[in-house]
Design a protein around this nucleic acid. Structure first.
Lengths: 143, 143
DNA sequence: CCCGAAGGTTACCTAGAGGTACCTGACGGC
DNA sequence: GCCGTCAGGTACCTCTAGGTAACCTTCGGG
């Protein structure tokens, strides 16, 4: 231990537990969608790029149970339910916004890289089946 | 659709795919650990607060396959392998740092809230069992 | 009286995350 | 030889995230 200072904190529990809650695709998306103001269940489904209603409900309940999101149900004619960030949730706005901005800016690059790597691995595998090359170096994908 | 402008992008695919890769507890922890410089496998295990060696390897391979992390194996006496961020991975430094800082600052608050809510629900449930006996027959009318 | 909308819940299923335990393989020290 | 280190790989297991599909409830409208 005691490598570079300021890293070892990773083992500290509450931070890791908090990470466990927010560090999921749907938590991120949901929290981000709420950074611009309260939204209804149906609106969140539309905005979130494919989340199912069940999973959205689960996600919201989890965020609610951890004090990041509030649920307001209005006793109206067509039942209306709005979700919004709590004060604690609002402290997440900036980090989430930055991460989302990163995903928007670099998502394409990631996908491009992944596909190139995939293609490279495929070719490599083809060569391996043709000639069993000695193949010493990295990428220990067995022969 | 067409609610507040600038939200609907969430449905856009590459961003969502990128989110899927980095938005996991161990990806976050691993990437954060690497923001301060290259680290070896064993160092990452120690720093990451409980990740198993198998899962660390899986996580690193996934990040590597998506162009965020590089693996350098040195052919030395005791095999040495170092992992570092790629240029693309380095663009994640700031977002990850912010999120990690948030987790460190607010992890305690989240855990506190969760435990309070848990206690409240327990009391509520106790009252329900005391007052509401006919909980049994609330099964869905199956026919 | 049935329909549709809104916001759920429930049952059922699969895929993947993640853990433990044990094996490999090259080296160095004894 | 035998043991220990480092970075894995593999087998096997469990648990949950997440998806589909169906049903419920309350309302107003036709």
């Amino acid at each position: 231990m005691s490598l570079r200072p300021g890293i070892a904190f990773l083992a500290d529990c509450p931070a890791l537990l908090a990470m466990e809650i927010i560090a999921s695709k749907w938590s991120m998306v949901t929290l981000f969608a709420l950074t611009d103001g309260p939204l209804r269940h149906g609106e969140l489904v539309e905005l979130s790029g494919g989340i199912s209603r069940k999973v959205l409900t689960q996600t919201l309940r989890r965020l609610q149970a951890n004090g990041l999101v509030e649920r307001h149900a209005y006793a109206e004619a067509p039942p209306r339910v709005e979700y919004s960030l709590t004060d604690l949730g609002r402290t997440l706005e900036e980090p989430i916004r930055m991460l989302t901005a990163w995903a928007r800016e670099n998502g394409e690059a990631v996908v491009t890289f992944r596909e190139a790597a995939q293609a490279a691995r495929t070719i490599e595998a083809d060569q391996a089946t043709l000639v069993k090359t000695p193949h010493v170096d990295e990428n220990p994908s067995r022969f």
